[in-house]
Every structure is written in C-alpha cells, then in structure tokens.
Design a protein around this nucleic acid. Structure first.
Length: 270
DNA sequence: ACACTAACCTGCAAGC
DNA sequence: TGCTTGCAGGTTAGTG
C-alpha cells in the first residue's frame, strides 16, 4: 500500500540495490495497466544501465543511460527484488538485471510504468505541485496556494497539483493534529492555521518514512503487509472510537467519497 | 476558471 | 452456503 513515505523508502532501497546495474531483459506480462504499457517499452529499456533512483510525488523515477523509467505503484503495487524469474499472480512486469530480478506486482492495476526521454515534461509529472518535504517549499507557499480557494481544505491538501504525496490517511491525520475541521473552506484559514497544517503534514510524512523503513525491511523478509500506519494514527480508521485527546467520539463525514474522520470537539469548524 | 462525478480494478468483508 | 453490495486506494477524463 504505497503512500509517499513507502515510495520514498522503496526508492532508497532500490537505489542502493540496482544503481549501476544493466537491464538485461524486460518482460511485460500484462500491458493493460492503468494506462497501456508502451509498445516499445521493452526495447527502450533493454540493455540500459541504471544510473540513479529518485522520487517525484508518488512516482519512482529511474534514471537510465538512455532515458528514464517513471513508475507509479497505484494503490496495490509492489516491487519485489528477487533472485529468480518466478512469477506470482498479478505480476505484470519482470525486469532481469545482472544477477537479480525486479517483479512488479499490482493486484488492482492502478499503477503504470513508462519510458521517457524527458520526465520533466512528461504529462504525468508536468502538473505536479510542491514536494512537501523539500526545503524550498514553505508555509507561505502553501498559504498562497490556498488563500483564494473555496473548496474544503481536505480535498485541497490531497490535490497533487497543489502539494504531492498527501493521501487520504495523512490528510485526515494532519488536519486532526492542526485542529482543523476537514470541511473548512481553505480561504477561511488564517496564516497561523496554514502554518500549523504545513508543519503537521511534514510531521506525519516524516514519521511515516521512519516507520516505512521498518515496514519495508519486514516486507523483504516476510510478506510486505504494511503495518506502520496501524499504530500511532489518531483518527484515520477510528470513526466511532474515542478521541485520543479529549475522549469524545470521533465522527465520519458520510457525504465525503473518501473516509473522512475527525473529532468534532478538537477540530473546530469555522 | 472551478467543482463535482465516474471510471479504472480486484479482493475482502458485511449483510441477506 | 452463496449471492449481492459496498468499500478501499490515487489519479484523471469527462461533464456541468
């Protein structure tokens, strides 16, 4: 279940595991992922050397000596580093390296994989917003991006055109930590509230990156079931349970398409 | 320009 | 027991 922190962890691990290696063979077992795999994907990748692995939003960016692979794991995508060519159900792409294989498994096929010569202008990346953990992104930037918006704040911090990497879980958590009601219109938030939200988005993401590393080492040895977000969550998945701060009842907002949980006592509606 | 909805896909859980 | 329904997740195309 890759959120930004897990994608970050995967990138770090991949970087140390495959940097410098050559792609010897690519096999695409299913081309109908979220978007079709390009006809020339295999031929573009075959023989290329892997120079580095980085991340943009939730996209993994693998720099080759002849271009780039950009790779989104959707919701259910998993990259397995293995020593043989064995395949499991829902393995869609197998990449043979010198002495190992990368298998891309994605049950729901919400993920996608591309080769491109120019990731900065790729349609999947070109409209992405700010990286929340980058030093050049400030609370003031976030305030300016939000101050004229009438939409509710929760939808906006999940909008990748504004800020990348904040999924449903972290949106719920960051709003709780900042005591902001999810339905608050963004334009009604003052600068101080946005500063708090900015800090707490960073806080929950960084905390999860720390835990995500643990999850990923478990994953390599065991079965990859993520566990890091189960503990330490204040509101997500806890509708009907008591608030860890005030002991009041946490509520769900039923008309929201995504599970939105908040504490009506701690998170003031404005 | 913004806002809202449906769509993509599968597996699991709950309800009947 | 099997069937149906709803839900989960991120992103984008399409419509109003």
């Amino acid at each position: 279940m890759p959120e930004l922190p897990e994608v970050e962890t995967i990138c770090r691990m991949l970087g140390s595991a495959i940097k410098g290696l050559y792609i010897e063979e690519v096999r695409v077992l299913r081309r109908d992922l979220r978007w079709p795999v390009q006809d020339d994907f295999e031929s573009r990748c075959n023989g290329a050397q892997i120079l580095s692995v980085s991340r943009r939003g939730k996209y993994i960016v693998i720099k080759l000596d002849n271009g780039y692979i950009i790779w989104h794991l959707g919701m259910s995508g998993v990259i397995k580093l293995q020593t043989d060519a064995s395949l499991c159900k829902h393995d869609h792409v197998l990449i043979k390296l010198s002495e190992s294989f990368l298998a891309y498994n994605d049950t729901r096929r919400f993920g996608s994989i591309y080769w491109t010569s120019d990731p900065n202008n790729h349609p999947r990346l070109v409209n992405l917003g700010s990286e929340p953990l980058e030093a050049d992104f400030t609370a003031n930037d976030l305030y300016n991006a939000l101050k004229n918006k009438k939409k509710n704040i929760k939808d906006l911090i999940m909008d990748a055109a504004i800020i990348v990497g904040v999924g449903n879980i972290y949106a719920n958590e960051a709003l709780f930590l900042s005591k902001i009601h999810p339905s608050t219109k963004a334009c009604d938030l003052g600068f101080e509230a946005v500063c708090s939200l900015f800090a707490n988005i960073r806080f929950v993401l960084m905390k999860a990156i720390d835990a995500g590393g643990t999850t990923f080492s478990d994953y390599r040895n065991l079965d990859g079931k993520p566990g890091y977000f189960q503990q330490g969550l204040m509101v997500y998945g806890r509708a009907g349970l008591e608030c860890k701060i005030c002991k009041g009842l946490l509520l769900k907002i039923p008309e929201y398409s995504r599970q939105t949980v908040f504490c009506p006592n701690c998170q003031i509606s404005s």
